[in-house]
């Protein structure tokens, strides 16, 4: 008798009752993979304490099933306790695929679980798909994103993958969806003394709109130069967007910091509009922005590689165009009397 394939799991990441964006992105992908034969259905695995209210939200974002383990012992993430309970759940339910967000937690937890189960794990995946032979293909970056490699996991199950945030579209929230919630208890932790103790978590929100959430990303590259860089900030202000940069602009110290860098070794953005100034089109930068809605690039070199991923290309010197564009936009907004509001991706 042929065995039924297991489910596609998404290990939920939540912080103080707020679901991580990457978890929602992965739920959409998990459902797609399940539909293409990657697994029976999409399940969200929710671990924590006093988090049962999140189950509905997960179902609304695409989970067919929520496996819920709510216990005081799981209040703070620790790789040992979380990996123990996850490994037990895997052994019990035998999923086909388990997806993690490639956050600090997610990459540590996925590696720990993979070692416990002695199964395969692909790290920081940029894409996941089922190929024409029915195999689950995991596309991973190597050499700082200069090279991409396909990873397969032919025999070991489940197939584990951690996925970079921002790689997949977050599904629309649909409160009419229904799904089952399966309550599990962490019996494996009974009598288990943890050798480590997470004492406290300290987090601060960075100032301004995070790049990944901006509806408009204004990106600057080498062609902008130090003198004209401030125009990018002003332009982003006018468009209620955020400023991103390329690696050379970061290295030169023009950009605000590492959190602004777009590319395979930095942020992956998919805003409604990406508008790049003086960006040449290094492959690792383009990998971080190519899925943006509308891509506009301004470069004085008509043969610049970046035009290959652009919807609109403007052949002009970014330094000269920036102040003119800024003035025109201010003029236009003055006429339309619109109010600046912060816009996020819906």
């Amino acid at each position: 008798m042929e065995q039924q394939p297991g489910a596609v799991w998404v290990v939920v990441e939540q912080n103080g009752g707020i679901l991580a964006e990457v978890t929602l992105e992965l739920l959409g992908k998990a459902r797609d993979l399940a539909a293409l034969g990657g697994g029976a259905h999409a399940s969200a695995v929710l671990l924590g304490s006093k988090i049962e209210s999140l189950a509905e939200e997960l179902i609304a974002h695409g989970a067919d099933q929520v496996i819920l383990m709510d216990a005081p012992r799981l209040t703070l993430y620790q790789n040992d306790t979380y990996a123990l309970v996850l490994a037990e759940l895997v052994k019990k339910h035998r999923p086909e695929i388990v997806l993690f967000g490639a956050s600090y937690y997610g990459s540590e937890l996925s590696a720990t679980v993979a070692a416990k189960l002695e199964t395969g794990l692909a790290a920081h995946c940029l894409d996941l798909y089922i190929n024409d032979r029915g195999e689950f293909v995991q596309v991973v970056p190597a050499f700082g994103g200069m090279i991409l490699g396909d990873i397969l996991c032919p025999t070991a199950r489940p197939q584990l993958a951690s996925v970079k945030p921002g790689m997949f579209q977050k599904p629309d929230r649909d409160t009419t969806r229904s799904g089952e919630t399966l309550i599990e208890t962490p019996t494996v932790l009974e009598g288990y003394a943890s050798p480590l103790k997470a004492v406290r978590v300290v987090q601060s929100q960075p100032a301004g709109l995070p790049l990944e959430k901006a509806a408009t990303v204004v990106a600057g590259g080498w062609g902008v130069g130090q003198e004209a860089w401030h125009f990018l900030d002003q332009l982003a202000g006018e468009l209620s967007g955020a400023v991103g940069c390329t690696r050379p602009a970061l290295d030169e110290g023009w950009a605000a910091g590492e959190h602004a860098m777009i590319g395979t070794s930095g942020k992956t953005v998919r805003p409604q509009v990406y508008i790049g100034f003086g960006v040449s089109g290094a492959t690792h930068h383009m990998a971080g922005m190519k899925d943006s809605g509308v891509i506009i690039n301004i470069n004085k070199d008509p043969a610049a590689t970046v035009f290959q991923v652009s919807d609109y290309g403007v052949v002009a010197d970014a330094k000269e165009l920036l102040p003119v564009l800024l003035e025109k936009i201010r003029e236009y907004k003055g006429k339309s009397k619109s109010q600046a509001t912060i816009k996020c991706i819906q």
Binding site: L152, T155, Q308, D311, V315
Partner: peptide
């Protein structure tokens, strides 16, 4: 448990609508 498949360079390739002229 994991096996390497094909390698790729990050691929791009669509045709942009191009403009040039006065700022």
């Amino acid at each position: 448990p994991t096996q390497p498949g094909d390698l790729h360079m990050p691929q791009h390739g669509q045709k942009a609508q191009m403009f040039a002229g006065e700022p």
